[in-house]
Design a protein around this nucleic acid. Structure first.
Lengths: 97, 97
DNA sequence: GCCACTCTTTCCATCATGGAAAGCAGAGGG
DNA sequence: CCCTCTGCTTTCCATGATGGAAAGAGTGGC
């Protein structure tokens, strides 16, 4: 009775993306700038990683204009949450926990 | 009071090497062929990854001739065990556990 | 000397990744 | 209406990682 089926996911495994997913798994929604700062990467790099996560169907990108400021918020999709959970389960399996 | 200081380690993080370390962390010593089969990689690929782990000082390679057969056994060094533990701690931190 | 068994190393092509810089769209100021 | 600023996005480019195939090397057996 495994809670989640362990499954290695290369898209999630890459360091920057693993961090991004880890953050989003906890907060549900986070702004682009906040993630960029938390992960310590440049705008371009974050943008590219987010794009990969988005194309994998793991992250949803919502753009809105609030107080005349552009704001991009990120959130894990249901699939993203599942993939992250499965990947973490796999890491746990590998780590022997 | 952290048991182990979380520390991301790129050498350990790469999928094949993470598996190798995970195996060795549990069994202490394992033969080349057994690791190769467990990780499902070719001889050349395993050899190259082991070499990287060895150069990082994480794995000790011992060659012996037993029953007229060459046998290479692998084991984590103390540093390897520490690096693996620290990396796993970091993964746990990222995963929010 | 020749062969088999076990890794090792070389060669090669591909892919991932990051940094810098140019590009773009929307909002506000002049 | 043009210019600028903000906030990402995309392009360009160089580097490093990685895997597969094949050749190579060391050791013992025949």
């Amino acid at each position: 009775m495994t809670a989640v089926e362990p499954r290695f996911d290369a898209v999630v495994h890459a360091p920057p993306r693993l961090q991004i997913c880890g953050l989003l798994a906890v907060v549900d929604t986070m702004e682009f700038a906040a993630v960029r700062d938390a992960v310590s990467v440049s705008d371009s790099v974050l943008s590219k990683h987010v794009k990969q996560l988005e194309e994998a169907g793991y992250v949803q990108v919502r753009k809105s204009t609030i107080a005349s400021r552009q704001r991009t918020s990120l959130a894990l999709t249901k699939a993203g949450r599942a993939a992250f959970g499965a990947h973490v389960a796999e890491l746990r399996r590998i780590a022997g926990l």
